[in-house]
Structure formats: structure tokens, C-alpha cells
Design a protein around this nucleic acid. Structure first.
Lengths: 225, 225
DNA sequence: ATCGAAATTTGACCCAGGTCAAAGATTTTT
DNA sequence: AAAAATCTTTGACCTGGGTCAAATTTCGAT
């Protein structure tokens, strides 16, 4: 078994949604063909232009998927965390990646060869369904991002994202820098900063350190147009 | 056989990439469970909020997938044409659609029940692969759209799209109105109109009627930042 | 606890592209 | 072929949010 990223007796395979419907024996089969890979904060897993050959399932940590403009400005397309995968392009097309994946923190992944995963899917339709499900979620999210950027004001986008990130406790901890966050929201860091301060002045939120946000007026945030 | 959308002796199933790797008998099996549906220009196939239960494979015609802002402004997310499918959400999630599908012209589709297609995929992995492939293409396109809208100038986006639509002959016919096109590019109709006129003044293109564009200086278009 | 680096905030300025409204073209219908 | 409907262009004006730069705060590492 190459992938020995164990955690409280659990093999990483069990923790990953796309493999969750399998029997123990099937999981062992998968564990045999996966390789553990670790990466430090700020390092890239792949770069735009690379030909991808493996699917990476994230076991621990998180990764941002970005694109660069020709002036070097970056747009965060999505953030991928534990249990999710990156490199799905590897499974089908032989075209190079058009985006770049960079670890937001120390990240541990399981690498699976593209050919192997394809083979697995053919034998276990449930894996294909899970991947397909995840892909349609992503497509939907990407389309919501397009909608947000082109149809809503920056205030609305920020308020919406704050509410979306809230787990019910009303206290949020950002998993990335405000700069990355701004880029994900499709706006400049300065604008994000200004608007957050203004939200705080209006009593909608309270900022706590660099990455903490406390919601103090949920209805107020929902009302923002 | 419910689906009788034949065309020069070809059954619609054969014309659709996601079914293209099947044997004749398998195609017949699929034809049995599909239902032909036709729709007029401007009519919707589904609306935001609907619970989708079927996958629609487009046989002839084209459909725009859009979202509305609360002020009624629309963003075209993508245009789907012959051989492609819509309603993939139906296969997995039970959540309502967040977008709306409207025919750009008279369109003929084959409807397949969500449960049936899932069943088909389990028996024919090649169908799942094709759908997955299509989904990753779409995700990539959606991400390119995000990149375009947030990272590039309107000029660059228009020039890029013109070059992308060119089939090599240098003469393009738009498959939608300029209004829809502007919305797809994430800009106002007026801005699109102004920039196209300016491109023409610069000798980069020549406009012909409402939907014709002739490229007269390809390098010039590529040079636009 | 202190220092240095990195991230964030604030100020001043400005322009790309949006809006509204009216006129002009194309296309479709009768 | 004329009329009606739809789509597109143009003009005038304006504002949201970007940019650059400098000041400040926070965080991580000694």
C-alpha cells in the first residue's frame, strides 16, 4: 500500500467522497495504486501549460486554482479542500492545463494516475457518478461566479460570500488572505478592504484580526443590493 | 422507438457524441427510451427554480443558458448546439436549476429521463466518460469566461471571441443577436456596438448586416490588449 | 517581548464602461 | 412593397471601482 496517509486508523481513501460507496476490499485496491504527495504552502502542484497525468485527491490542506492575466494579475477560480480532487483534466484530454494550482497551506494529497482512475471508473460506476456530481457542482459554482462578477455590485458579492461562508455560528475564519479573497470575488484588494470597513461602520459585521469576521446583522447583509 | 427524429437515414442517437461509441443494438436500446420534443424560438426548456428530471440532447437548433440579476439583466453563460446536452443537473442533484434555458431558434431535442441515463451510464462506461469529458470542457470554458470578464478589457474579449468563432474563412455569422452576444461577453450592448464600429474604423473587421463579421486584419485583432 | 516581513488599510485621483434616451437599420410580416 | 416590429447605433453624461503610493497593522519567528 503506497498511500500511507493514515489518520486515526482511517485510510485516506475512506475520507474521500468519490470513493465513499466502495467496499473495504475495493478501497484497498485503490490504496494500492495511489501515491502520497506533500507540498508546502505557496508551492504549485501544476502550472498553466503543464500536461497533467494524474488526479490529485486532497487529504489535508487546501489549494487555490487560479489564472493569470498577461499583466500578471491573478483570478482565483476556486479553492479546493479536503476530500476534493484536482487535475480532472488529466482523465480525458491531452491538452495542457490553462490554470495553475497553488497550495494555500501545507497540503497532503494522494496522486492517482489518469489511466488508473479511468479504469476504476469503468469498473465502479459509483466513482464516475461521484466525479460527475462534483463536476456539475463546480460548473454551477463557476457559473454563479460569472453571474456575480458581471451582474452584481461588489457589495452584494462580498455580503453574499460572507453569508455563504457562515456555518451558523456567525463567526468566520478566512482560509486565505484577503488579497486572494478579493481576487476570488473579482475585485481589487483595496475595494474589498474599503467595503469591509464600511460594513463594519454600518454595524453589519465586526472584523477580528486579519482573517476573522463576525456577523452582527445577518438581515442587514441579506438586504444589500 | 419513440424518438423518430431521423435525418438522411440517421437516427438522432448516432449524431450525438455522448452515444457515439456504442454498437447499433445499444443505440436502438437508447432510442427506445428517448422522446422527441420540439420548441419554438424564444420558448424556454426550463426556468430557474425548476426541478429538472430529464437530460435533453439537442438534435437541431441551439439554446442559450442564462441567469438573471434581480434587476432583470441577463448573463448568457453558454450557448449549446447540436449534439450537446442540457439538464445534466437532473442526473444527480435534486436541487432546483439556478439557470434558465431558452431556444435561440426552433429547436428539436431528445428527452431522456434522469434515472434512465444514470442506468445507461452504469452499463456503458463510455457514455459516462463522454459526459465527463463534456463537463470538463464546460468547466474550462466557464473558467475562461470568468478570466475574461474579470481580467481582460472589453476590446480584448471581443477580439478574442471573434478570432475564436472564425472557422478559417475569415467570415463569421453570429448565431445570436448582438444583444445576447454582448451579454455573453459580459458587457452592455451599447459598448459592444461602439467597439465593433471602432474595430471597423481601424480596418480590423468589416460588418455585414446584423449578424455578419468579416475579419480583414487577423494580426491586428490578435494584437489587441 | 521584539523585530522584520507580509498583509491590510487609507487617501487621492481617474477612466472604462454603464445608463438612458432617441434616431437609424434590418428583418419580418402582411 | 409597404408597414410593423425588432435590433442596432450613436450621443451625452456619469459613477463604480480600479490604480498607485504611502501609512499602518498584524503575524510569525526569533
Amino acid at each position: 500500500m503506497n498511500c500511507n496517509c493514515n489518520d486515526r486508523g482511517q485510510n485516506c481513501i475512506e475520507m474521500v467522497p468519490i470513493f465513499s460507496n466502495l467496499t473495504y476490499d475495493e478501497m484497498v485496491e485503490i490504496a494500492m495504486i495511489t501515491t502520497e504527495t506533500a507540498i508546502e504552502k505557496g508551492e504549485s502542484i501544476y502550472n498553466s501549460g503543464d500536461i497533467l497525468e494524474s488526479l490529485y485527491v486532497i487529504h489535508k490542506g487546501s489549494v487555490k486554482i487560479i489564472r493569470y492575466s498577461d499583466t500578471g494579475k491573478e483570478q482565483v477560480l476556486r479553492v479546493v479542500g479536503s476530500g476534493q480532487f484536482i487535475g480532472e483534466l488529466a482523465i480525458f484530454s491531452s491538452e495542457p492545463a490553462s490554470d495553475t494550482a497553488i497550495a494555500l497551506e501545507k497540503t497532503i494529497m494522494c496522486r492517482i494516475d489518469g489511466r488508473d482512475i479511468k479504469d476504476l471508473m469503468a469498473r465502479h460506476p459509483s466513482i464516475a457518478f461521484k466525479i460527475l456530481d462534483e463536476m456539475s457542482q463546480r460548473l454551477k459554482k463557476a457559473e454563479t461566479l460569472v453571474e456575480g462578477i458581471s451582474l452584481h455590485s461588489v457589495e452584494r458579492r462580498i455580503a453574499g460570500k460572507i453569508l455563504e461562508m457562515d456555518d451558523g455560528k456567525g463567526e468566520i475564519r478566512l482560509e486565505m488572505s484577503k488579497g486572494d479573497w478579493a481576487s476570488h470575488l473579482g475585485m481589487s484588494q483595496e475595494t474589498l478592504s474599503r467595503k469591509l470597513t464600511s460594513f463594519q461602520d454600518q454595524g453589519l459585521i465586526r472584523l477580528k484580526g486579519q482573517r476573522g469576521i463576525i456577523i452582527t446583522d445577518r438581515e442587514g447583509l441579506e438586504r444589500i443590493e
